[in-house]
Amino acid sequence: MTVRVASAAVVVGVALAAPVVTGGAAWALPQAAEGQATVSVLHAVPGLTVDVYAGDKELLPDFKPGTLTDPMKLDAGSYDIKVFKDGDGPDGTPAIEKTVDVPEGANATLVAHLDENGKPALDAFVNDTSKIPAGKARLTVRHVAAAPAVDVRADKKPVFKDLVNPKEAKGEVPAGNISADVALAGTDTVAIGPAELDLAEGSNTVVYAWGSAKAKDLALKTQKLTGMHSAPSGVPAGEGGQAAARNQLVPVGALTLGTASALTAVLISRRLRTSR
């Protein structure tokens, strides 16, 4: 099977859990050279640890749920990946064996997560790295949990409504600190949070909701992309601080967790055989 990651920076899913788990390292976006891609991967399928191999070479042992890789440059090309349940490789039968194709210029977040019905899925989201008006920040929320539609609130006021798995919503808001939570759509019933977010000027704060409502292991995880400032003289007209929600998704398809972990392995090693 060949998986193609369209133009985007890659991260693998996040969970909606109580207590809320957050992480928010600020990452300046690495610039991929010609013939390369920039990729991050988030493993957001609860309860399953895997080992990732390239042929018979172990690349990523004991890859645990909730792990988000740093963004990395990698050479574009095809990668032969074998994924085993933790401890089963390399002499056993792989749970999945895939050929993964990573195209030049990819800038995406790849998320291995649960779909609304609790089955493993894989989706790639475009990371919006366009310039942000002076004094503002970009907030992106991605619903990758086995949970119904939700409203995302800032200081208890809905910012994005009726967000469903596996969609995202984003908008530009005034820079500063907010208290964010996730409520069941159309209600004040909080499913996750609150969590304090620092929306720095010129940054894109990406918040992932992942896990399973049924298993009661929902959580939040954050990723912060920086370096998108605009000069004050170039500030376009704003919208009074209201986040203009836009659903945007670059689907890779409903794949298995093994494929998500395979793409993670691609990030960890550049020593794989590249077929152009």
Results as ranks from 00 to 15, higher is better:
residue 185 A to W: 05
residue 153 R to L: 12
residue 79 Y to N: 11
residue 134 A to W: 06
residue 117 N to D: 13
residue 205 T to C: 06
residue 198 D to R: 05
residue 187 T to P: 02
residue 257 L to A: 09
residue 106 A to F: 11
residue 128 D to V: 10
residue 80 D to S: 10
residue 81 I to D: 01
residue 211 G to M: 03
residue 146 A to Q: 07
residue 169 A to W: 00
residue 186 G to F: 05
residue 133 P to F: 01
residue 266 V to R: 03
residue 275 S to V: 15
residue 119 K to N: 05
residue 79 Y to Q: 13
residue 243 A to Y: 04
residue 114 L to S: 01
residue 269 S to Y: 01
residue 133 P to S: 04
residue 13 G to K: 00
residue 179 S to D: 05
residue 214 K to G: 06
residue 79 Y to P: 14
residue 15 A to E: 09
residue 10 V to Q: 14
residue 138 R to M: 06
residue 264 T to W: 13
residue 160 F to P: 03
residue 45 V to P: 11
residue 196 E to P: 08
residue 217 D to T: 12
residue 33 A to C: 05
residue 134 A to Q: 12
residue 88 D to S: 10
residue 252 V to E: 02
residue 6 A to S: 14
residue 226 T to Q: 10
residue 132 I to N: 03
residue 42 L to S: 11
residue 125 F to Y: 15
residue 28 A to D: 14
residue 174 P to V: 00
residue 29 L to H: 01
residue 177 N to F: 04
residue 39 V to M: 09
residue 105 G to V: 01
residue 239 E to W: 12
residue 262 A to Q: 07
residue 61 P to D: 02
residue 36 Q to P: 03
residue 261 S to Y: 10
residue 45 V to R: 09
residue 238 G to W: 00
residue 235 V to N: 08
residue 79 Y to R: 15
residue 54 A to S: 09
residue 92 G to H: 10
residue 163 L to C: 04
residue 245 A to N: 10
residue 275 S to Q: 14
residue 170 K to C: 11
residue 240 G to C: 04
residue 256 T to K: 12
residue 183 A to W: 06
residue 19 P to V: 11
residue 1 M to K: 14
residue 26 A to N: 05
residue 186 G to M: 00
residue 232 P to G: 07
residue 109 T to G: 13
residue 4 R to F: 12
residue 145 A to S: 02
residue 50 V to N: 12
residue 177 N to G: 00
residue 104 E to N: 13
residue 114 L to K: 03
residue 261 S to C: 12
residue 56 D to K: 12
residue 149 A to I: 14
residue 246 R to Y: 11
residue 140 T to E: 01
residue 90 P to K: 13
residue 270 R to Q: 15
residue 76 A to R: 08
residue 40 S to D: 06
residue 218 L to W: 07
residue 232 P to Y: 00
residue 16 L to F: 09
residue 56 D to E: 15
residue 139 L to Y: 04
residue 89 G to A: 05
residue 150 V to Q: 06
residue 161 K to M: 08
residue 10 V to T: 09
residue 125 F to G: 01
residue 180 A to G: 06
residue 183 A to D: 10
residue 19 P to A: 02
residue 176 G to W: 01
residue 122 L to V: 14
residue 153 R to T: 02
residue 213 A to D: 01
residue 76 A to P: 11
residue 9 A to N: 09
residue 163 L to G: 01
residue 41 V to N: 03
residue 200 A to D: 04
residue 259 T to N: 15
residue 114 L to Q: 07
residue 215 A to C: 08
residue 258 G to K: 08
residue 124 A to K: 04
residue 162 D to N: 08
residue 58 E to I: 12
residue 184 L to K: 15
residue 250 V to S: 12
residue 88 D to C: 00
residue 53 Y to P: 06
residue 219 A to D: 11
residue 16 L to W: 11
residue 257 L to Y: 08
residue 16 L to N: 11
